[in-house]
């Protein structure tokens, strides 16, 4: 299982370090930071709740999730007689953490090639994520095969090939406009014959509202099952951290068609917080697996709920 494999990688800057680095780059003024600390001992008033609400809304949690979280918080704060802002914030973090934790799922054990299908709307960073994932797996000495099943977008195959060269992963491809399921079929057969550890499948970006493109994904999962029983073992929905409330609908419809098992939240090195994943965890029970925090090949990290929640308030 890919999650557990990350345990053996060499110790690099931690998720929190990277997040901090990213956050510093947002050039939050020092003044704001000091205000933050000063607020720690402030008494709770109407403004406090308004500010917390603003923080959650600004992070794209959405009004429904924000409302629920704050409702719970109010109840608990009353119950525990919370007196100052610092404690209230800690309680709020607990609340968010509980939502994210409840969506986490234990890793499955997989015999034979593990098939990872990567899906998402256009421009979220699927190909880049695949490149980084291949890099991580290769660094652990695993064999990886990349299936270039995005036969639609101009130069998508070439883009994946660059990543193949970089990471030493072979790319199985067809000509532009070819049948994605056929590429997948070939890749899985090759992987089974060669006993490759991982097959990562790149798919064309598609809006979740395009029925015919979504049924193409259904067909691909059926094809995968036929060649490798139990495949695809992971279906990763790549989502851009700048995505707003439409992210929920994306997760819902991609899960319907392709059986999404987890989210990769990309572009967290910008100023967007990606809070829609909290709403996704709450409503759909989908876990976040990885986060993308930069353009270098090592910039894909396993998701850490605690660090993520901390970053919402950083």
């Amino acid at each position: 299982m890919i999650q557990t494999l990350f345990g053996s990688t060499e110790v690099k800057p931690t998720f929190l370090d990277r997040m901090k680095e990213a956050v510093t780059r947002t050039r939050e003024s020092l003044g704001e930071r000091i205000d933050e600390i000063a607020s720690w001992n402030k008494q709770i008033d109407r403004n406090t709740l308004d500010e917390l609400e603003a923080t959650l809304l600004a992070s794209d949690l959405g009004s429904a999730t924000t409302g629920q979280v704050l409702g719970n918080l109010r109840e608990k704060a009353d119950h525990k007689q919370i007196g100052n802002v610092g404690e209230l914030k800690r309680l709020l973090k607990e609340e968010l953490l509980a939502i994210l934790k409840s969506a986490e799922r234990p890793a499955k054990r997989v015999e034979g090639p593990e098939v990872i299908l990567v899906v998402g709307v256009n421009g979220t960073g699927k190909t880049t994520t695949i490149g980084k994932l291949a890099h991580t797996l290769r660094a652990q000495g695993k064999t990886v095969l990349l299936a270039a099943a995005d036969t639609f977008r101009a130069a998508a195959i070439e883009q994946l090939e660059v990543w193949g060269d970089r990471t030493g992963a072979e790319v199985i491809k067809t000509k532009p406009g070819g049948d994605p399921s056929a590429v997948l079929f070939d890749a899985l057969q090759a992987a089974s014959a060669r006993k490759t550890d991982y097959v990562i499948v790149d798919t064309a970006g598609r809006l979740h509202t395009k029925t015919n493109l979504m049924s193409e994904l259904e067909k691909m999962t059926r094809t995968a099952q036929r060649v490798v029983p139990g495949a695809p073992h992971e279906v990763l929905l790549v989502m851009d951290a700048t995505t707003g409330q439409n992210g929920l609908q994306q997760a819902r419809l991609f899960t319907q068609s392709a059986g999404v098992t987890g989210i990769v939240l990309t572009k967290l090195d910008g100023t967007a917080k990606g809070g829609v994943v909290v709403a996704i965890s709450r409503e759909l029970g989908l876990p976040v697996r990885y986060v993308g925090v930069g353009e270098k090949q090592g910039d894909l990290l396993p998701f850490n709920a605690q660090d993520f929640v901390d970053s919402l308030f950083a």
Binding site: L57, A58, S59, D60, V121, G123, D240, A241, T242, T243, G244, Q245, N246, G247, Q250, G270, T271, A272, K273, V276
Partner: peptide, 12 residues
């Protein structure tokens, strides 16, 4: 800009 962008649209 992506029509699906959330709250961060103002920042960028």
């Amino acid at each position: 800009a992506d029509a699906m962008t959330g709250q961060d649209a103002v920042n960028s």
